[in-house]
């Protein structure tokens, strides 16, 4: 995963609350290998009408070039499917800005270089209004934790460890393997302090 510090792109508003991960990617698409690309699955059913045609008034259909999403409360709630993040990334998104995120979605996002930035509901509503059903150029600076649209700066909330991870693009497995000796020591201690923590043999 490549790290990033500044992203300049196109912001679009998705004025919906509770966009859960079942909406972000319906379950029937999740058996595809990632190499096939998940972008076309993003909000697959939400952006289509009953006959399967793309709804022309849906923001992402109107502005397929957008790569920063401003949305409402409780984005990414529900299932732990990381495929929801793959769909956003493969559709070109680098950041989602919302008042609150599902906890598992947010950590999945950071693990894939997608920024889940929190702004107050008021600030999100203000940006939503600025964007209307159009788009605007926007700039995200992870060093400063700011989102700039037009002349306005918005300071967003982001866990400090997540900020560093997004910037460095660190891979956790490499990082953890540096602690191999400590992990082995812990395992050994635990097997003595809590021998019951290992599964009993089945007769």
């Amino acid at each position: 995963m490549a790290g990033w510090t500044v992203h300049t792109g196109t912001a679009v508003a998705l004025p919906l609350a509770n966009v859960d991960t079942d909406q972000l990617i319906p379950a029937r698409f999740m058996s595809a290998p990632r190499s096939e690309g998940y972008g076309s699955f993003l909000l697959h059913d939400t952006r289509r009408d009953e006959d399967g045609a793309l709804r022309p008034d849906f923001p992402l259909n109107r502005h397929p070039e957008a790569n920063i999403m401003i949305t409402r409360e409780n984005f990414g709630s529900g299932s732990s499917r990381e495929a929801a993040v793959y769909a956003l990334i493969d559709a070109g998104f680098r950041a989602v800005i919302a008042p609150a995120f599902g906890d598992i979605f947010a950590s999945n996002a950071v693990n894939n270089g997608l920024l889940p930035a929190r702004l107050t509901p008021e600030a999100c509503a203000q940006i939503e209004q600025m964007l209307g059903d159009g788009t605007a150029q926007a700039r995200i600076d992870l060093d400063q934790s700011t989102l700039t649209i037009g002349a306005q700066d918005f300071a967003f909330d982001l866990d400090a460890s997540w900020r560093i991870k997004l910037i460095n693009g660190w891979d956790d497995i490499d990082l953890t393997r540096q602690h191999a000796a400590q992990i082995a020591q812990f395992r050994n201690n635990r097997s003595q302090a809590a021998p019951w923590a290992w599964p009993g043999e089945v007769d």
């Binding site: 732990s80 499917r81 990381e82 495929a83 598992i104 950590s107 999945n108 693990n111 956790d172 953890t176």
Partner: peptide
């Protein structure tokens, strides 16, 4: 619950 990147991490490191 964890996502796929974390599942891979647990598989690799417990």
């Amino acid at each position: 619950g964890i996502g796929a990147t974390e599942v891979a991490h647990v598989l690799a490191t417990q």
